[in-house]
Design a protein around this nucleic acid. Structure first.
Lengths: 199, 199, 199, 199
DNA sequence: AATGAATGAGTCTTCATTCAT
DNA sequence: CATGAATGAAGACTCATTCAT
């Protein structure tokens, strides 16, 4: 009898989160009205408060929801790669695909930083640091394996993260290139040449 | 000749703009109260409305005010350079110095994008496009002059802009490197190697 | 014969009333949540509405419930007395004992008068009038029987009711005297001396 | 030029307090709407918040406002008396006159005890204790001066306070006696006889 | 020109009540 | 009968804006 597996008890909650992504992405935190989110989720205003203590909590839960989706995909498709070049390729491509498929979510993560308070500020810094740490570590590994020449890992990490974000912004905010793999490989070609050992 | 030190004409307006930078930077658009800005400027609440039609107009005027400062410096110190390498060096260094000297303003421009409405969204896109166009053009010139190999100028422009922003973010949001010129040259070394003609 | 210990019929209704006393007494009408009352009664929120049309009706039913308990005891222990002195003694002692045993209920009746609307206002006035009428009538009987001198029965009635309430308040809101009978007889001693015929 | 003495800068604030008395007295704390109070005061809703931080603060400020009026009159007319009998006479008469002139305020103080929270509960208890302490002390002084026989001062104090409140309630909630001085002296006659030394 | 007291539109949030299960 | 998820009406409070001085 346990048919309906798709919509377990978390049903309404997820509906609201999806709606929150849309509304927050388009209006920003302050201009988004809880009533709009409820309407977009197809529920009553009060129902939002059955699942989330406040508008602010809903906002943060949504950030974590989106991030969880991203991290999930990242772990499956990026962390399984070996070698700097391969890792970067998957990392970039994965990023652009994710953004392309979730433009609304992406806009939330990229642009919608109202700096309401220190809490969000810290959240943003924390995400940024995660990314930098990963990139820097990748460079270190590359140096160790001989794939990368002796550069300052912190600087190279910043560069990788910057390029990474810039390409992502292009997909999210600008015109999405038709051939994403080619787009990525063009960028990585320049990057890797810049990092390549003399030889 | 240095008479009128206290209050040259047009002073109030600028006082308010300076205050707006501080307050908007720290609180974001929505959490900033007009009253706070007035207080920080040392004027009455009503006075703000003598100089600016609305809080929103004040916000945009402030953005343009900050941008004008930046552009001014950019034109003096960057546009006078010749050659891709030299231009990039000045452009990066200039950027980091500006951010370092105006951390508060920088936070406004970097993080504080409430996406209140399409107006701001367009403003942000527009600034981004300006930067990309400049970088892309720089690459084209580099290719023409032989300083840069035959890369996709759009992709290279995105990369340069990404690195540019990433280093800027590091100064604004992270730890500022002690030796900025060295910091920049390390990054440009990688970048230029990546873009260098085969030899 | 003591079967059905857990849930005799009509039990739920009484459970809810008992819970209502506790919650209303501690939170007041408006701050009491129906959900809390339901929880305190060990039933679901919806169940409350099976037995009471609304929160307001529950409140009034609770008032009558408490009052019925009081009146019951009053009739058994006070109305069976003869003579003013004996009646007063039992009336006072009975009152204090009731309050002592039902402090929570007492707080409802003594302090918790939200004056939500004219309905409750009239309820309060009505209870007050009952008490005054009884006291006044008692004085009249005392005058007729010679136990009380020729005083204004309305005034004397007010005085008795006032003393009555004041001693009750002491038990409910202040420190309960250790020896209640002595406490009462001290007060009645003064009162009866004041009302005594010249003789 | 300093004519308008009646309406100093505290003008609006007092208007709001007066309106608050009316509205709170008739509707109780929870059913009173800030907007109603503002309307009754002839000001805008926001103006209330210029003078009072919250509805709750307004409520307590109103209580203190009324109490200050009362205490003021009490000090002038009651504390200047000498002798138990005279003090009681003035105290009672003063009370009834105050209530008669400020029926709305009186209802606030007498009936409107929503027990919103412990704060108000403590306020009520505190006022009650003040009254009891005063009455008890009065009895002690009477015993010392020979005006009162050797009764338990705590019990006698409770009685006096009870009679005091009962007469006040009659004026506030019931029918006001035409001849207040006579009303008071009838009650005090009984009371003082009850407290009189044997002789 | 400068001010700040006054305003009320706009929104989050609560909670009594309903009703499908 | 019993339940509690869902609802939306209602109200406290904020703050951009106005305008009399």
């Amino acid at each position: 009898m346990e048919i309906q597996i798709d919509r377990p008890s978390g049903d309404k909650r997820e509906q609201i989160l999806e709606a929150a992504i849309q509304i927050f992405a388009h209006q920003g935190f302050h201009d988004a009205k809880v009533e709009e989110i409820a309407a977009a989720a197809g529920v009553g205003k009060g129902t939002v408060y059955e699942y989330f203590r406040s508008k602010e909590e809903l906002f943060y839960e949504m950030l974590d929801f989106v991030r969880a989706l991203y991290v999930d995909q990242f772990q499956k498709e990026v962390l399984t790669a070996t070698g700097v070049n391969e890792t970067l390729k998957r990392m970039f491509l994965n990023h652009l695909k994710f953004i392309y498929r979730h433009r609304d979510m992406a806009r939330v993560l990229l642009v919608n930083h109202p700096v309401m308070d220190d809490k969000l500020y810290r959240w943003v810094l924390s995400r940024r640091q995660e990314m930098l740490t990963f990139c820097e570590e990748l460079v270190r590994r590359g140096i160790a394996s001989g794939e990368v020449r002796e550069v300052n890992p912190a600087v190279a990490g910043l560069m990788i993260a910057g390029i990474f974000n810039s390409l992502g912004n292009q997909v999210a905010l600008g015109e999405t290139p038709a051939d994403l793999p080619r787009f990525v490989s063009q960028a990585l070609d320049v990057l890797m040449k810049g990092l390549a050992p003399k030889d």
